[in-house]
């Protein structure tokens, strides 16, 4: 645990040692503002809730989280520090966890900095703060899913650009897997069970339910297990590719 914590601290400090952290946070807050107020019709809706805020999160994360995750392993492989890290008395699992948790904590910081919108909505009306908390919780789980995918893909290449592009594509498929775009591809030849399974993998469906205040165990299990599976794949990817 102390080892994971040491790795976590190093990684998190790494974000703030370069302009990456500030650029990311500023863009995240800026886009959140634009999406919520202009595209989300925050005022015109006349409802005191944060639906127009949360509804854009899957699309924001789709691009921003892979940008955050792309360097996690690709950078270590490119500069050779992976050899340093993997010859410290640290297991691959500890390293994967330390890095993932640091990046996740960073998205949590960015997400926490959106608090003015929560103050705003409370100032303008009397929203159901339980639903808002559920929304933040869902958004955090959603970012964990995107991050686990991005981290795993980052371990497969030395090139951050490739890591980013591939991660965006995979995240995109997971985001949309409930929509006709993906389902139509399978319907007609795949068995119904498979189609339903694919549909249930959708980030959007699971996320949207939660932001409405419906915290179902199934949704939590979905995001937690999805993250765990991708992190497990991340461990295998690091283990298999570290010497190449």
């Amino acid at each position: 645990m102390a080892t994971v914590l040491a790795l976590f601290r190093r990684e998190l400090a790494g974000y703030f040692a370069t302009p990456v952290a500030y650029v990311f946070i500023v863009i995240f807050l800026f886009l959140n503002g634009i999406f919520t107020f202009y595209l989300g019709d925050f005022y015109e809706r006349g409802q005191a809730d944060l639906q127009p805020f949360f509804v854009w999160h899957p699309w924001l994360y789709l691009f921003l989280v892979p940008a955050l995750g792309m360097r996690l392993w690709a950078e270590e492989r490119r500069t050779g520090t992976l050899e340093l890290l993997m010859t410290l008395p640290v297991s691959v699992t500890q390293a994967v966890l330390g890095k993932f948790l640091a990046a996740w904590a960073f998205t949590a910081i960015a997400l926490a900095l959106t608090f003015p919108i929560w103050i705003t909505v409370n100032f303008l009306g009397s929203p159901d703060n339980g639903v808002i908390i559920a929304g933040y919780f869902a958004s955090l789980l959603l970012s964990a899913g995107y991050l686990a995918i991005s981290a795993c893909i980052s371990a497969l290449t030395k090139n951050q650009v490739i890591a980013f592009v591939v991660a965006v594509v995979v995240c995109f498929l997971f985001t949309l897997s409930g929509l006709p775009l993906v389902i139509n591809f399978f319907s007609g030849w795949a068995p119904q069970v498979l189609i339903e399974t694919i549909a249930s993998f959708s980030f959007l469906a699971n996320f949207t339910d939660m932001t409405r205040g419906v915290i179902d165990v199934r949704h939590i299990v979905y995001f937690v297990s999805l993250t765990a599976v991708w992190l497990f794949a991340n461990v295998i990817a690091v283990d298999q590719t570290k010497g190449t």
Partner: peptide, 23 residues
Amino acid sequence: PEGAPLYGDMTAAAFLHFITETR
């Protein structure tokens, strides 16, 4: 390791502290 790879964005002091911590 060959070529002495190091975390370039850390200061020398922070890096050495990181090593003693992980060890």
